Amino acid sequence: MSHVIKHGLLVADDWRLVQAGEPPADPARAILPLADWLARPEHPAVWLAPDDDPDALLPHLVHLSLIAIHFPVFTDGRGYSLARLLRQRHGYRGELRAVGDVLRDQLYFLHACGFDAFSLRADQSPAEAVAALADYRWQPLGQR
């Protein structure tokens, strides 16, 4: 079973990121790409690529349990902007997860932009990343 860092803790990840056009093995626990999600906006989880427009989600934010933002490479900072827009401008309160080429060294800055969950790159140790987060004061989003 894979793990995700959520609210500063390492937890089992029962969500699965689905690629465009791929049928989900468990539709109830699938994170659909925006293009596929638009055909099924009642679905509770979506992922955004860096160049996706988050405005397509606005009428549905209250119903989304999870929005994942994909980082194709760790040097692509557009995901930080998407997170800020969703949290601060649009008031999204559900889980906001960083996925893709996510490194332990980015977690503090990702959290500062609104992410509360992180799926690290395969060569990164989630347990070590959680330990590294202890160096920072972890505040739930509503207390900032």
Rank of each mutant, 00 (worst) to 15 (best):
P72T: 02
L96N: 07
F74M: 02
A117W: 11
L85Q: 07
D52V: 05
Y92K: 01
R144W: 11
H63N: 11
E22F: 09
H7Q: 13
H63C: 06
F115S: 10
A49L: 06
P50D: 09
P72Y: 03
L17Y: 12
A49N: 09
R84W: 04
M1P: 14
L96G: 07
L58S: 11
L17V: 15
Q139E: 09
Y108Q: 04
A117V: 13
H111A: 13
A28P: 09
A35W: 04
V4T: 15
L10S: 11
Q124E: 15
L120H: 14
F118Y: 13
A12L: 12
R121M: 15
L10Q: 14
E22L: 10
R89E: 11
P54I: 00
R40K: 09
I5W: 08
Y80G: 02
G21C: 11
F74T: 00
H60W: 07
G142W: 10
D51L: 04
P33T: 09
H7W: 13
S119L: 10
E42L: 05
L66C: 03
A127P: 07
V102Q: 07
T75G: 12
Q124V: 15
K6Y: 14
Y80V: 01
A39T: 10
A122G: 14
L120Q: 13
R16N: 13
D55V: 03
D105Q: 06
A132R: 00
D116N: 15
D105I: 03
R93Q: 15
G91Y: 09
V18Q: 09
F71V: 00
A83R: 00
F74R: 01
A39M: 05
Q106A: 03
D76W: 06
S81Q: 03
Y108I: 02
G77K: 01
P59C: 03
A12T: 15
H63E: 10
Y136E: 01
L32A: 11
I5L: 10
L66F: 04
R29K: 14
A134L: 00
D14W: 10
G77A: 09
A131H: 02
A20T: 11
G91P: 12
H60E: 04
C113T: 13
Y108W: 07
P140V: 02
L103K: 08
A68S: 04
R40S: 12
L120A: 14
V73T: 14
G94H: 05
L48N: 07
A132D: 05
D123Y: 14
P33Y: 08
Q143M: 08
A129E: 06
L82G: 03
G100T: 13
M1Q: 14
